[in-house]
């Protein structure tokens, strides 16, 4: 399945794109993450949460929507 992944904050700098379409063979968030970690090894070093269809989700969740986003904490103020 093809999913659209958006990267926020420093994650966009790490992946060098704001968003992209990723082709996935599995159907869980964990499988998407495994693929992204392989594609972008530095992603493993940073903290972030995953949102699906505008809602924070877990690694175990099934991907049932094509719109995913990776949100890191921001420190600035």
């Amino acid at each position: 399945m093809d999913v659209n992944v958006r990267y926020f904050g420093m994650l966009a700098a790490l992946t060098r794109c704001g968003e992209e379409t990723v082709s996935l063979s599995g159907d869980r968030v964990s499988e998407l993450l495994a693929l992204l970690f392989k594609k972008y090894p530095p992603l493993k070093q940073v903290d972030f949460q995953v949102a699906q269809n505008g809602e924070i989700t877990t690694e175990e969740a099934l991907i049932n929507h094509c719109d995913l986003a990776l949100l890191p904490p921001f420190a600035g103020g």
Binding site: Q45, V46, Q49, I56, P73, F74
Partner: peptide
């Protein structure tokens, strides 16, 4: 509930 524990020090840049 969003970020349960602080990230490792130095991994999140400030301004």
């Amino acid at each position: 509930c969003l970020f349960p524990t602080p990230p490792r020090v130095g991994t999140v840049p400030d301004c």
